[in-house]
Design a protein around this nucleic acid. Structure first.
Length: 886
DNA sequence: CGATCCCGCCACATT
DNA sequence: AATGTGGCGGGATCG
């Protein structure tokens, strides 16, 4: 329109002759200037004003030359247009004297007004976030550039980033297809997975080499890089994506950088990434040499990307204060988890991704998968199969063409990246932790889950079970929860450290002081336990243990990765665990390992099919982690039970851990009738009215309660009115794990309802009993049905209460199936009640967007301050608008 | 003065 | 060769 107007305007209004109303002119934009005779003269194009003049103008505008020139002048315009003077008034004002114009120009062109972020917002404003699937919107770069009054170059900056997130795709030269955010979550998932994978690698890598944080900030990047190169780790770089992309020129660094940048956020626990770290990571990936200039350039690019991401509402600026001082950073405020979608992810485990075919094989049930238009597995999906069906960059030519490459490759093999990412994550985590510690909020902060918010869980002062998503391994409690963990070697050591509950290994039950009760029953199918047990003080120990335990798994994983073993979907969890650990400790990578990375996925997911998502939701972590409540942590540490149990379990499990074992178990379980066992959680915990019963069918190992860490237990859960169970303490029967009896296939069950519990989070007050023997809870009748297919359903059979839970579960499944959006909500709410995900340890908060709730006050303040700054784009607008009116 | 990041040159890719 | 893309970094502006 603008152009049009201008063209008309200019021609029509021979400036000279028609002196314009200066008064009006204010509103006018510089545009006219070009139009004005004088300027016209300058320009080649100014044709005599003829009837066709307008046309010519338009045409000229189209031409590159014109564009540039006009744009220069127009640059100002866009702002005006968008904000102030988009109105016709400007037209009226048409003629402006040069003088006036100059003034205007001076006023307007604030740098901010020209910012990429603002431009991006304008750009985004032009298209619906969720366009109808049917309609495809094509974007003409020239058109947009002219409309927005910027050079095309700038549009490229925007589009490239959008393309990396699959919001748009290149259809043809100069043409892009707008997809909107429909696939965003999936894309993010994919990125997350990819990031985690890399992460994992890093982890292993680090373990092998050095765990020191040295790497942290990438000083050592080179070495790492070299190492990484050496490392066989993953070469995701499959020919597909990587090679091609790599080959191609500079390989669209912006796109790739954007993806990597996003991955960093998704991988980091804190969700905060500092620019320098990101830059280092990205650099390393690409290069060995870390020259300063390069770094500088990288940072510039990151700003470009960040601006776009900010406009998308995915990140915001914040400042992180470190020892050194305050560093610019960005915090992820977009969706953290993609539960609904994530199902896919899970299903897909990163490992699986590589294999397109297999991808979700496991997930078959998951609709999402089916739907999944986009799962891009790394290469394949990205490249060839794109998420966006419609838009492929290269229309005409071969698929191989470099352009296509762009799309692909999110993940190429960049071990470096992963390493870097890890480092970065670690660094961040540290930072955050530091900050958190200082400003711990409540002992147990609820983790605000983006979607889950619905959840009414109030933060439980006492014992809140922060639920951690399945993906994320329960975090170890930063504070010291002691637990060691998982390591088989340290089995019994339940530490009585703080007040650990006294748990007698042999004895059936453990008692905890706390008021709230939990009953855990049933064998847990999986060992979900992530045993990340943060020892109170010792992260190192844990890590060591964890690593030890993990390492094998990791190795396998790696191999799997390379191989793209379909089976190894599990990665998700592991990575998460790792992440957490990372966060917690400065230590770079302690990985806690995932308990059963491989298997779990299958077992859980497979049976559960859609349910996987549920898991996430359901996972409870009782982490005291929240900085605020170190004390609480200690108390919780009381959960020694967990530790012991874990140990026990771990012992038991260890053998099983390998996925195969689990699978077996699950199968067995399925076949076997089981005694329903439940876990009951009193409302006191923070769930105001809900009590949870979990039936534990799972494999014995599955439920590990690490006192501090909280291994996650996957348990089917039922929500029961608190009244019913009010008086019960938590009881866990460790022995149950192996119950053959459970009729319901563990896998299915677990999948559907499996929850991870981390005991660590429990309020000190809550008494917990753990019984070695299976406890039977009355209310729920076990469901005999053993359909693997219908894992989730079994719950229904259970008591009404159960039903609820089941329903929730069911919901999840649907979610999995298809609509991401819907799914999310459904799951969250439904699940939420079941699993207090919402309640998370402060640390976790990172995942969740709700920044403020969790964050340290101080941090907040800072953040806010930053935000204000950051908010720039919006604010700027406002400011501008306000100011400009003059 | 450091953080941001606009601007546009210019190389490489595609047509 | 023309045009499309986009890496890249100087240097301006912001805070």
């Amino acid at each position: 329109e603008n152009i049009f107007d201008r063209s008309r305007m200019a021609p029509k209004t021979p400036i000279k002759n028609e002196p314009v109303d200066l008064s009006k002119q204010k509103g006018c934009t510089p545009e006219r200037i070009p139009i004005t005779p004088v300027k016209l003269v300058d320009r080649p194009q100014p044709d005599p004003w003829t009837p066709t003049a307008n046309l010519k103008m338009l045409v000229s505008a189209a031409s590159p030359d014109m564009r540039d020139r006009e744009k220069k002048k127009e640059l100002f315009r866009p702002i005006e247009n968008s904000e102030q003077s988009d109105t016709p008034d400007s037209l009226q004002y048409d003629m402006v004297d040069d003088n006036t114009v100059d003034e205007f120009e001076k006023q307007r062109p604030s740098r901010k007004q020209k910012s990429l972020g603002l431009l991006c917002q304008k750009f985004l404003a032009r298209y619906p976030s969720y366009p109808l699937s049917t309609e495809k919107t094509t974007i003409s770069l020239d058109e947009v550039a002219s409309i927005l009054g910027v050079e095309r170059r700038r549009i490229y900056d925007i589009v490239n980033v959008l393309e990396s997130l699959h919001l748009v795709s290149r259809v043809a030269k100069n043409q892009y297809c707008w997809h909107g955010r429909h696939n965003l979550s999936q894309t993010l998932k994919t990125l997350q997975e990819a990031g985690e994978l890399q992460y994992g690698e890093l982890m292993t890598f680090f373990q092998h080499k050095e765990q020191d944080l040295e790497y942290k900030f990438g000083e050592r990047k080179k070495e790492t890089i070299a190492d990484s190169q050496d490392r066989p780790l993953l070469d995701f770089s499959e020919p597909d994506c990587t090679s091609a992309s790599a080959n191609s020129r500079k390989d669209k660094s912006l796109r790739i950088m954007s993806q990597k940048f996003v991955m960093l956020f998704l991988v980091s626990k804190t969700k905060i990434v500092t620019l320098d770290i990101a830059a280092k990571i990205l650099i390393e990936e690409t290069q060995d040499t870390v020259d300063h200039s390069k770094f500088k350039t990288k940072v510039r690019r990151l700003y470009d990307i960040a601006n776009v991401l900010t406009s998308l509402g995915l990140i915001k600026k914040v400042h992180v204060t470190e020892e050194r001082g305050r560093k610019p950073a960005f915090k992820w405020i977009g969706p953290v988890e993609f539960p609904g979608k994530t199902d896919e992810l899970r299903g897909h485990s990163p490992t699986s991704d590589p294999l397109p075919g297999t991808q979700r094989g496991a997930c078959a049930p998951c609709q999402i998968c089916a739907t999944g238009k986009q799962r891009f597995t790394r290469h394949a999906s990205f490249n060839g199969t794109q998420p966006c069906e419609g838009a492929r960059r290269k229309v005409s030519s071969e698929p191989n063409s470099p352009h296509q490459e762009r799309q692909a490759c999110i993940v190429n093999s960049n071990e470096y990246c992963s390493k870097m990412i890890n480092l970065a994550a670690v660094c961040r985590q540290k930072i955050e932790e530091d900050t958190r510690n200082s400003s711990i909020t409540s002992p147990l902060s609820l983790l605000p889950v983006p979607g889950d918010s619905d959840f009414c869980v109030n933060p439980l002062p006492q014992a809140v079970l922060p639920v951690v998503q399945a993906d994320v391994p329960s975090l170890s409690l930063p504070n010291g929860i002691s637990s060691q963990a998982l390591h088989p070697s340290t089995p019994a050591a339940s530490k009585t450290e703080n007040g650990k509950p006294t748990l007698l290994p042999n004895q059936p039950l453990l008692c905890f002081p706390s008021s709230s009760l939990f009953m855990l029953c049933g064998g847990l199918q999986e060992n979900n336990l992530r045993e990340t047990l943060p020892t109170t003080g010792d992260v190192g120990n844990r890590r060591a243990e964890a690593q030890a335990t993990i390492s094998p798994a990791a190795c396998q994983k790696r191999s799997s990765h390379k191989c793209a073993l379909p089976s190894a979907p599990v990665d998700d969890e592991e990575p998460a665990a790792k992440k957490q650990t990372m966060e917690q400790s400065d230590v770079p990578l302690s990985l806690v390992v995932p308990k059963k990375p491989f298997e779990s996925p299958k077992a859980e997911y497979t049976p559960g099919s859609g349910c996987t998502s549920a898991e996430h939701l359901e996972d409870f972590h009782l982490d005291l982690a929240s900085p605020a409540a170190p004390e609480a942590a200690d108390k919780e540490s009381t959960k020694p039970l967990d530790s012991q149990e874990q140990e026990k379990w771990s012992q038991n499990k260890h053998p099983d851990e390998p996925s195969p074992g689990k699978e077996h178990i699950s199968k067995e379980n399925a076949n076997q009738p089981f005694l329903p066992q439940y876990l009951y959680v009193q409302p006191t915990a923070g769930l105001s009215s809900f009590n949870f019963l979990f039936s534990a069918n799972q494999a014995p190992g599955a439920v590990s309660l690490a006192a501090s860490q909280l291994p996650s237990l996957s348990i089917p859960c039922v929500v029961v009115p608190s009244a019913a169970l009010a008086s019960f303490p938590l009881i866990c029967s460790p022995t149950i794990t192996t119950n053959p009896l459970s009729p319901v296939p563990d896998g299915s069950f677990s999948a559907a309802t499996s929850m991870n519990f981390s005991m660590s989070g429990l309020a000190s007050t809550t008494p917990v009993f753990i019984g070695t023997t299976a406890v039977v809870t009355p209310k729920v009748s076990p469901t005999p049905s053993v359909d693997p297919q219908q894992p989730a359903h079994p719950a229904l059979h259970l008591s009404p209460m159960l039903t609820r839970s089941c329903s929730a579960v069911k919901l999840d499944s649907p979610v999995c199936m298809g609509h991401p959006v819907t799914l999310l909500k459904l799951q969250q709410p439904s699940s939420t009640p079941l699993t207090p995900k919402s309640i998370r340890p402060a640390r976790h908060e990172a995942f969740f967007k709700t920044p403020r709730s969790l964050g340290d006050p101080a941090a907040w303040k800072k953040n806010e301050g930053n935000q204000t700054r950051n908010a720039s784009s919006v604010q700027r607008r406002l400011e501008i608008s306000s100011t400009s009116p003059d």
